[in-house]
Design a protein around this nucleic acid. Structure first.
Lengths: 225, 225
DNA sequence: AGGAAACATACTACTTGGTATGTAGTCAAT
DNA sequence: ATTGACTACATACCAAGTAGTATGTTTCCT
């Protein structure tokens, strides 16, 4: 197999994955038939089943890809040096940005959890689900870790139950998946403005004003230790 | 028809409505069959179709009921006298409380929006959907109104885009629908603690500390005008 | 007793996940 | 140039499930 054919296959695979994500987004898993995905591509079932052995595998592939994307989106902030507030700010912005930019995938990721008790008949599917949940916990753990550190530093001011605060924080960041829909007039800048506002709200929920975590070229301002 | 039979019918109707809500919650609309709902009641299709002419009508009834509940839950706060912060606090607590107490209904309400472009084939269904969206807008408008007044009073501090703030605020309040699941050990008090923490986060997102909106028996404390 | 309400049962037309098979194009070796 | 193997699909088909209907059957009220 030559280089170009391998690339071509990869492109076809991506095309199929995206089409599936879009269908799952707009109609949900159960209401999306394989024929639906195929028609969305101007193809037939044969093509879909050539790349994925079953509908469930297709869905899992989309969900796993979504997880890859959201991990990548917040990784810079997580690996970054700086205060918990600064790190969390970059992580959150990346996360929220991904919600908007990769909306079809993220929609699958967010409400793909209801699949928990849905049709977990097969053993193989149970394992795939469990592996996914592990990754998800790992992801949430990153945010929890940084928030906890901010609380320890006295920089964040949260309620008595950390888990509730984390859930609320993530709910805010995930929000765009439910209410944002791309329009003709929106630009990269307008999308960034949305992200900034969402992140501002989320950080503010932790008791932080924008001054305390945004990057200033003038370093003289330091509100907290 | 006697009084008791009318009551009995009403009870049966409620029982069916709740069973449907629970099924729709756990599996979604498309994956829930009429037989599923019937089996959940230990009955057969005949019973379901005796009360509802179609699956879609059943779903609409659940969704409308959910809207009734959430309206009722936040109405006290909306009608209340007081500062925008105090009113919004009570409204939000009622809303969040309803998310937890009426979880099956609320789940249907929240993600029932994806039905927008789903199978809106019939004209009648389009009208039902449009009527529902109108009520939903009206509901959100109540929160928007109170938030806007708080901003005008200088009591709230929000980002440049009001609509984004409102969406984030509602996302936080709706959050429990996605992550809360009833457990054996939770009590009315523990549930209230969850509600309080969620509301605290949401209000904090508007730049409000808990001191500025909670009711104090000692009235001497007034942080803002 | 008679009728209507409240279901259960049996059945139909249709959809859907998955499979089995056909087929056009590609690539490499002879 | 031809052949053979393989990829990348399309087509045809089947078993299972589902929304809705038509028709019993039991229970309750009057």
């Amino acid at each position: 197999m030559s280089q170009s054919t391998a690339e071509a296959r990869s492109e076809r695979y991506e095309e199929l994955l995206r089409a599936a994500a879009e269908c799952f987004q707009s109609r949900g898993f159960a209401a999306t038939s394989i024929d639906t995905v195929a028609r969305h591509l101007g193809a037939t079932k044969g093509r879909v089943y050539h790349y994925f052995p079953s509908k469930m595998d297709l869905f899992n592939a989309v969900r796993d890809r979504a997880m890859d994307l959201v991990f990548a989106a917040s990784d810079d902030g997580y690996q970054m040096q700086g205060t918990p507030a600064a790190r969390l700010n970059v992580m959150s912005a990346g996360h929220a940005r991904s919600m908007i930019d990769d909306l079809p995938y993220m929609h699958v990721l967010i409400d793909g959890l209801q699949m928990l008790r849905y049709s977990t008949t097969t053993q193989f599917q149970r394992e795939a689900m469990e592996a996914h949940l592990t990754r998800r916990d790992l992801y949430e753990q990153r945010f929890r870790e940084v928030v906890l550190q901010g609380v320890a530093d006295g920089q964040f001011h949260i309620g008595p139950q950390l888990s509730i605060t984390i859930q609320s924080f993530m709910s805010t960041l995930n929000g765009p998946v439910f209410w944002y829909r791309p329009r003709g007039e929106d630009t990269p800048e307008s999308r960034q403005a949305i992200v900034d506002d969402v992140v501002r709200f989320a950080m503010s929920g932790l008791g932080l004003s924008a001054d305390s975590f945004t990057q200033h070229s003038n370093q003289s301002q330091k509100v907290f230790a």
